[in-house]
């Protein structure tokens, strides 16, 4: 009995020793020399591995940043300027400051604004729905409401509002990684400048149909009338294919367009004072 025990322990211990020696030599033989700065950069990264920078993950970003001649093509949207400054310090590069951005849902086709015209009965993803047809409203451009963007968000910043059937962005949580922008088959979500104290103005519509058709499909649609462009003093608004677009780099947040828009398609967010005292919901 005792001999068996000793033998067992002995063989196992010997085996362990032998294998560790083998492993040691293999590790030595196949050791990959890596730039130690990759580890350093990776340490200051947020570690979300979201892919928002365009690389497969934080390590891939670090690896590429170390090898790159400058940081022009490397920016971590999640960490923003603070992280990029650290990265630049490690690598000895310059980094241009970027304004913080946020995901903006450019569709206001809520159940109330945009009546449903049919019932969708397929797999509940926007991707599959978009491949099949224009959607369950008369607007072939608007939000399909299956929440692919919500599923794509790693930071819990998106949620579907059951009342409107539209996704809602939580500004506090949104890191502007762009995963939702990629996930949306209708290209409704856009990354826009967050603006001073979160104040921003945007066209909440992507409908390119003629005004009559767009208006018939959705009461909050941009009808491409061009009133906003006319009233804008900063040439920030362009109207193309029956659709207005506000360039956030030119917009001075004067909100003249908001007052002018006949369908309420232009939204202003986070302004301290409501534009018109009567319409308090505009201040949302």
């Amino acid at each position: 009995m005792t001999t068996t025990l000793i033998w067992t322990i002995g063989i196992l211990a010997g085996l362990g020793l032998l294998l560790s020696v083998i492993l040691f030599f293999i590790a030595k033989q196949f050791k990959v020399e890596e730039d130690p700065r990759i580890d350093e950069v990776e340490k200051v990264m947020p570690g979300a591995n979201c892919g928002g920078c365009g690389f497969a993950g934080c390590r891939a970003f670090a690896d590429s940043a170390v090898k790159a001649p400058n940081l022009d093509n490397h920016y971590c949207p999640v960490g923003g300027d603070p992280v990029m400054k650290q990265v630049a310090a490690i690598l000895g590069y310059e980094v241009k400051a970027k304004a913080p951005m946020v995901a903006v849902v450019r569709c206001n086709g809520s159940c109330a604004n945009r009546p449903r015209t049919n019932i969708y009965d397929g797999a509940q993803t926007c991707k599959i729905k978009a491949a099949l047809y224009a959607g369950d409203t008369a607007c072939p451009f608007g939000c399909l409401g299956c929440g692919d963007c919500v599923a794509a968000c790693q930071f819990g910043a998106l949620s579907m509002d059951p009342k409107t059937g539209l996704p809602v962005v939580d500004e506090q949580k949104c890191t502007a990684c762009g995963a939702c922008v990629k996930a949306c088959p209708k290209s409704i979500i856009e990354l826009r400048n967050k603006g001073p104290r979160g104040m921003r103005v945007f066209v909440s519509c992507v409908n390119k149909d003629k005004g009559v058709v767009a208006r018939k499909a959705c009461s909050a649609a941009c009808i491409g009338c061009g009133k906003c462009a006319k009233v804008c003093a900063h040439e920030a608004i362009t109207v193309e294919n029956n659709l207005a677009y506000i360039d956030f780099n030119k917009c001075k947040l004067c909100r003249k367009c908001v007052a002018e828009c006949p369908t309420g398609a232009i939204h202003d967010i986070n302004f301290p004072k409501p534009l018109m005292p009567k319409k308090e919901e505009n201040n949302g």
Partner: peptide, 8 residues
């Protein structure tokens, strides 16, 4: 009133 739409 509203008809169903789905893939085949």
């Amino acid at each position: 009133d509203k008809h169903i739409v789905s893939p085949n």
